[in-house]
Design a protein around this nucleic acid. Sequence first.
RNA 1: GGUGAGGUUCCCGAGUGGCCAAAGGGAUCAGACUGUAAAUCUGACGCGCAAGCUUCGGUGGUUCGAAUCCACCCCUCACCA
Length: 426
Amino acid sequence: MSTNTLLSDLQARGLIAQKSGDDDALSEHLNQGSRTLYCGFDPTADSLHIGHLVPLLMLKRFQLAGHKPVALIGGATGMIGDPSFKATERSLNSVEVIDQWIDSIGKQLASIIDFDSTENPATLANNRDWMGGMNIMAFLRDVGKHFSVNAMIGKESVRQRIDRPDQGISFTEFSYSLLQSYDFAVLNRNHDCSLQIGGNDQWGNITAGIDLTRRLNSNQVFGMTLPLITKADGTKFGKTESGAVWLDPQKTSPYAFYQFWINTADADVYRFLRYYTFLSVAEIDAIEQEDQSSPGKPKAQGILAEEMTRLVHGEAALGQVLRISTALFNGDIQALDQDAFRQLELDGMPSSQIDNPLGIVDALVETGLADSRRRAREFVTNGAVQLNGVVIKDDAFMLGREQTMHGRYLLIRRGKKQFHLLCLED
RNA sequence: GGUGAGGUUCCCGAGUGGCCAAAGGGAUCAGACUGUAAAUCUGACGCGCAAGCUUCGGUGGUUCGAAUCCACCCCUCACCA
C-alpha cells in the first residue's frame, strides 16, 4: 500500500493500472506538496464521451486532493491521430472542424474540473500552441533525435499495426508518440508538470514522454495509467445500440445517459461505482453488502446512475430524468395526469408532434422506434408495442383523437425500453 | 512505377453462371422468464401487406440468365523499386 492517501484510495478503487518508477517514488513526490499533473484529450469528435470520464475524473480526484490538473487538448496531436492499439489508420479531419471540437470539449472539461479555484485551479492547454508553428528541422533535431525507431517498432501499442498482414501504419501516425512526449516535456518546463495520467493504452506514449523530459529538461517526472474499463460479458464498454454515450446532452440526452448507467450489469456495477463515483470505498462496500443480503433488485445501479447524471448534467437534469424514468418504468401510465405528460415532454422525453391521425405502423417508423415498416409490423405482431400502457397487436390500428390521453398524448412503447411521446395537434 | 493478394448484406466469412436476398458465426432487435439484470429458450434480422423490387467496390460488356465470366476504373494490403 502506498504511503500517500490519494494513491491508496486510487489503489483500493482499482484505478491504477501501471505507474512509473518504484512503488514509493510517486507517493513521496505527491506527499511533498501540491503537484501539477496533466492528461491529454484529443479532439476526435465534438464531444467527450464516457470513455473520457475516467481520466477526467482522475484529474478531479487529484484536484480535490490539492493538486493542480492541466487538461491538455490535443489541437496538434488530434490532427495526427494516435495509433496506439488502433487496428486501422485514421482519417484526418480539417483544421476548422477540429477547432470547433476543441471549443466544445474545452467547455465540457470545465464543467467537471474546477478552473476557478483560488488554491489550485485547473488549467487548460492546447498543444497546438507550441507545436503548430514548430519547424520541421527543429523537431527532427531536438525531438526526433532522442527516439530510437528500433525501440518504437518494438512497442506493443503499434505492434498490432506492424504485424498485421492487411494493415499498415503511416509515418504520420507513427510519429504521434514523439508529439505526445514533447507535450510532457513542454508542460514540465512551462507548468512544472510532473505527472501524466492516461488510459492504459497510453503507457507507451507516457513512458516515452518521461524519457524525453529527462533528456531535454533533466527532470524526473512520473506517469500513471488507468485501467481499461471492461465489462464482465466481454462487450465493449460505453456503447449503446445508438453508439457512444456522450457527455453532450444534445448528443445523448440526460435521460438516455441515466438509462445507460441504470442498465449496468450486476457483475460490473460495484466496480463502476469505485471507478466513476466519489463515494468512498467503504460506502460502496456497504452498498454491495446490502444488495447481497437482500433479495430482489439491487440498489447499486440506481445509485450509480444518479451519481453520474448529477455529476455530468447537474441536479436539475437529474430530477427531470428521475421523473421520466419513474413514470415509464414504475408508474401506471394510464394514471398519469395531464401535467405529468406535459412534464415528460419538457423533461426531454423523446417526443414529436403529429397533425393527423396515423396508423400504428407509420407511427413507429416516424418516431424512429422502427426503422422500416416491415420491422414495425413485426414488432406489432410480436406484441412488442404498447400505446399508453396497452399492448396493440393489430397492425392496422389507427392512432386518432379517441386514442389519446387527455385529448393529446400518445405514448408509444416498443420493446421494454424504447419510448416515444406523440402529441396530436389540433 | 512493378509484382502478388484482396474488396460480399452491421462485422467476420462462405459462395466461382441458374437451386442466391445470398451458408455459417457474431452483433443487434423482439417475445417468454426476470429486477428496465444475467443465463436460457423461441423468433426476426435488404425493402415491400403482397405481387415483387433493389443489393455482393464502380462503370460498361458477354449471356435467356452474373455476386460468380470479360474489359476498364477506383480502393486496401504486402513485397520489390
